[in-house]
Design a protein around this nucleic acid. Structure first.
Lengths: 219, 219
DNA sequence: GTGAAGCTGACCGCAGGCTGACGGGGCGGG
DNA sequence: CCCGCCCCGTCAGCCTGCGGTCAGCTTCAC
């Protein structure tokens, strides 16, 4: 699979590169939008990984112009946590998926695989979890058929559990995921969000491991 | 193999880097703990080389917090000869091995190789121990397929035995591991926890060495 | 047999977790 | 520009079961 990475953070970029190449894909890596345009003009890509903040412009308009120009390659957005509105805008602009920094590299591989599969003709993968149906791609969730609306933070939280089903998540890990680690939070935010999630999705979905963290219930 | 080197001595660091890269591994080198945290947030490593005296903090608490956050990557401590107590504390805090400075570079290669062999590549290493399957990463333990829930303290204790299978752990060492230095405990807490563990996991898993301590049974 | 070391059932104190309530602030609509 | 809505961070009070303590028993060395 030919992949174009547009990312100006050299540390993250190198990590992503190593992972992707390790997965056996071929990768081109650029740090600026105009370089990305050059590459796209001469080569076809099966997947584009797009950071939203580049030195010569923002990713959203770029993506929009790409789609306007008829490019249909799947796009995965790489975004920091505090850019939630951008993320949603990005999906509306035609992105296929997004990854919240910092993300696990194995997660990246999984998303790439899922995008590849989706483009191979398979329909959106829907995870079933008891009475819940979760569509990660369209970010909707059904409880016995009825759509349950989740707020942004709730979704980020819940997504973690669905993505790594048997992982035990410590509060610290979840906090790190919810808050780009310059913003500091005290008090029991995670507990509150978990409580709110349980209220919406039913108890038993997220289980407490006292003194250690949370994990998905049932199986 | 992806390796993170945390070492502020530039001479030693460069030597280590050359050796590791020469061995065909990929290396990230940082000189401060906060940089290490940044790297760990975005990338997964197969091995961490940790100096104990960094400009922005000491390595032991860093290691402790790493383990508390659920990171299970193997850690080799690099330490000067006069820090013997730190060394022991480090092993109790969850390090896998240590090297005393100045060390031979070939020795470093050997240790890395042994760690690599031990971790054999799988992202979620599952240790099998008789009828027990232990997944350190997700903190789950199965007894003939059935999940056995452990409490926080029980897990910390058991983890010690699994991480260093043939080590003899004295009660003092285990206490040190369970209680972060400030909290003091009298009475036979360790014995009680071992008892509770045996009840859950079956007798014969942890053996008593009278007057010395405990160690893993069977093989 | 004697003493020391280790084991384990029982007992609660309290840390850790849950949740209802409140309020600040951001956003959209009028 | 104001009003109202909703998201979410904070707090307080309640509740649960973890785990430290103890006592009485068993095991082991000599």
């Amino acid at each position: 699979m030919r992949i174009l990475l547009i990312e100006d953070d050299t540390v993250l970029g190198a990590a992503v590169r190593d992972q992707i190449v390790g997965d056996g894909h071929s990768l081109d890596w650029v740090t600026r939008l105009d370089h990305a345009r050059d590459h796209l003009a001469v080569a076809g890509y099966d997947l584009i990984l797009l950071d939203l903040m580049l030195p010569d412009g923002r990713g959203i308009p770029f993506l929009r112009s790409l789609r306007a120009a008829g490019n249909v390659a799947p796009v995965i957005i790489l975004t920091a946590l505090d850019q939630i509105s951008d993320r949603i805008e990005g999906l509306n602009a035609g992105a296929d998926d997004y990854l919240v920094k910092p993300f696990d590299l194995s997660e990246l591989s999984a998303r790439i695989g899922s995008v590849a599969r989706r483009y191979a003709g398979n329909p959106n993968p829907i995870v079933t979890l008891g009475a819940l149906e979760i569509d990660l791609a369209s970010r909707t969730i059904r409880h016995k058929g009825r759509v349950v609306p989740l707020t942004a933070k709730e979704w980020v939280l819940f997504e973690a559990f669905v993505q790594r089903p048997q992982q035990l998540w410590s509060k610290a890990q979840l906090e790190e995921r919810l808050y780009s680690f310059d913003t500091e939070v005290e008090s029991n935010t995670i507990e509150v969000h978990v409580s709110r999630l349980r209220k919406k999705l039913g108890h038993g979905v997220i289980e407490t491991e006292r003194g250690m963290g949370y994990r998905l219930g049932m199986a």
